[in-house]
């Protein structure tokens, strides 16, 4: 929780079923004002479903909670007025121009100075010269920016962004995140789902969900710390061969290539160290203790969750 402690999202036990399938299972989440919280998890793990329940677009089968102080089931209308929700799939009108889309949104929120709001937004986007272009003709990156601009026009108190940067080039992603940090500095709260690890590291806090259940939460450091994973970095000519040899050895849980290097990860330090040093004697490689990354932890969490899921 941050200093002023005001809670923007506070949900407990959220559950959603589609037929027999439990898409979201007993999810608790709290987000404080001004926080940027990353919502991570593999495809189909229930991120979109959770976000939809928080903003009143899906009715939970179990659980309760508030969003901006309003009950998520009974006061969906009040929530919708103060939330900006950017859907995973572009959901503005492709057969309307950029300007027409923004005017549509501005009218829906009954903004008092429509012309001015739209003009400012168009200029802020740097799309003044293209404002009469159909939204469907924009590239992926521009569509995302337009969608973000459209959902902050009514000055919401909470932004829910569902994979806003999927399929967007790195420079556009960087700019997108700069923008999100600017908005958070002004007191906006952001819950953003993403696949990208570098984006997780730009969040104040991260929540990781797998198969509908939250399996980790906290700051990046906290999550790495509490995972108990140790990492060795293997480099040198024999790295590739060493990697093959390491697979399946005692204490070795993950072997992954990062460029020229190999990261070897395991949760039991001594046996991991023993295996790595044993292999180092057989191949022309250097071994050094390394930093466990968030990605290492998430891959571990994902495979654990998979084992649990299959074992059920």
């Amino acid at each position: 929780m941050n200093a002023n402690g005001e809670t923007v999202i506070d949900v407990r036990g959220l559950t959603k079923r589609f037929g027999d399938k439990v898409a979201v299972d007993d999810v608790d989440m709290t987000v404080a004002r001004g926080e940027i919280v990353g919502f991570l998890g593999p495809n189909g793990s229930g991120k979109t479903t959770t976000i939809r329940m928080i903003c009143g677009l899906l009715r939970p089968d179990g659980g309760e909670g508030t969003c901006l102080g309003h009950d998520i089931v009974r006061e969906a209308e009040a929530i919708k007025r103060q939330v900006g929700y950017m859907t995973q799939r572009f959901s503005l009108y492709e057969d309307l121009t950029i300007r027409e889309n923004l005017e549509f949104v501005a009218r829906l929120y009954a903004l008092s100075n429509l012309r001015q709001s739209v003009n400012e937004t168009v200029e802020g986007l740097g799309l003044k010269s293209r404002q009469h272009q159909l939204a469907g003709t924009l590239s992926g990156g521009w569509k995302q920016r337009l969608a973000l601009a459209a959902c902050i026009m009514h000055k919401p108190r909470l932004l829910l962004l569902d994979e806003p940067t999927a399929g967007v080039d790195p420079k556009a992603r960087r700019e997108f995140w700069d923008e999100i940090h600017h908005l958070a500095e002004d007191g906006l709260t952001v819950l953003v789902s993403t696949h990208y690890m570098d984006e997780a590291e730009r969040c104040h806090r991260v929540v990781y969900i797998a198969y509908g259940t939250i399996v980790a939460r906290g700051t990046a450091e906290e999550i790495i710390e509490s995972s108990g994973l140790g990492t060795f970095v293997v480099a040198g000519q024999g790295a590739a061969a060493a990697a093959r040899a390491l697979n399946g050895m005692p204490g070795v849980e993950q072997v992954a290539a990062f460029g020229q290097d190999i990261h070897v990860v395991g949760s039991h330090g001594p046996s991991l160290a023993e295996s790595v040093h044993e292999v180092a004697e057989r191949y022309p490689i250097h071994v050094a203790p390394g930093e466990t990354t968030l990605e290492d932890v998430f891959i571990r969490l994902m495979s654990d969750a998979q084992v649990n899921e299959n074992g059920r």
Binding site: K80, T87, S91, L92, E94, L108
Partner: peptide, 14 residues
């Protein structure tokens, strides 16, 4: 079908 319904429903329309 076009996926715009989600956006429409997320906004305060009765």
């Amino acid at each position: 079908e076009r996926g715009t319904m989600e956006n429409l429903l997320a906004m305060p329309l009765r």
